[in-house]
Amino acid sequence: MAAAEEEVGGLVFHPMDQFIVKPLFGDGPISWYTPTNAMLWMALSALAVIALLVFGTRGRAIVPSRSQSIAELTYGMVRKMVEDITGKEGLKYFPYVMTLFCFILFANALALLPMSFSPTSQIAVTAVLAFMVFFFVTILGFVKNGSHFLGLFWVSSAPAAMRPVLAIIELISYFVRPVSHSIRLAGNIMAGHAVMKVFAAFAAVVALAPVSILAIVGVYALEVLVVTIQAYVFTILTCVYLKDALHPGH
């Protein structure tokens, strides 16, 4: 493992160190089953989701407690999103969308804790999430609509001469979807965390420390916003792709 490290006039920058996957115990090589910090923080986010949605609602009260109303708000928001975008028949896939939203939201949010590891900044993780959506949606589209699904690329409202060109563009944009879908999430989280690290390094200089700390506070506040918005955007794009699979007509 190469740690990025260079001294510049007494300042030490380790902006990318926080993304290194390390084994939890010992220092050996990482095989597929090794418990790592990535595993730990993914498990923590899953546990947080379960704590909110299962233990938070165990009262099943008609008048909800605080945690239950948060769980209900999340449920209502995601459900409304799925229903608004994909229509009634999309509600069958609501648990899948809800799983994605909750996992990404909590993985993002827990990564904001100091000394934590952010699973969603790893391209491997977000690529798996995005390609799962991509394959799921593509297979669902063909199963539901058969060859009709290809109508997604053949824009029948365009002039006949333009259609082949548009088909190529649509095809490319369709296959770029999982790439942009995953890199958007990973890039946003990675960028925010790296910027915070860089500002943190400046805090070693006494003259710059106040500015640096203020900047970290500002970036942190922005990151809290970004964390939520990226989870929301990932989910809403999943819904949009799902809509394309269910209703391929433009």
């Binding site: 942009s180 955007v233 809403i236």
Partner: peptide
């Protein structure tokens, strides 16, 4: 608002791509 966020996400993703290109060039 949903459309707003989708639009912002698309626009922002391209900026992230340039950031990624920079990182790839460096590392």
């Amino acid at each position: 608002t949903a459309t707003l966020f989708i639009g912002m996400a698309f626009a922002e993703a391209l900026g992230i791509f340039s950031f990624l290109v920079a990182l790839l060039l460096l590392f």
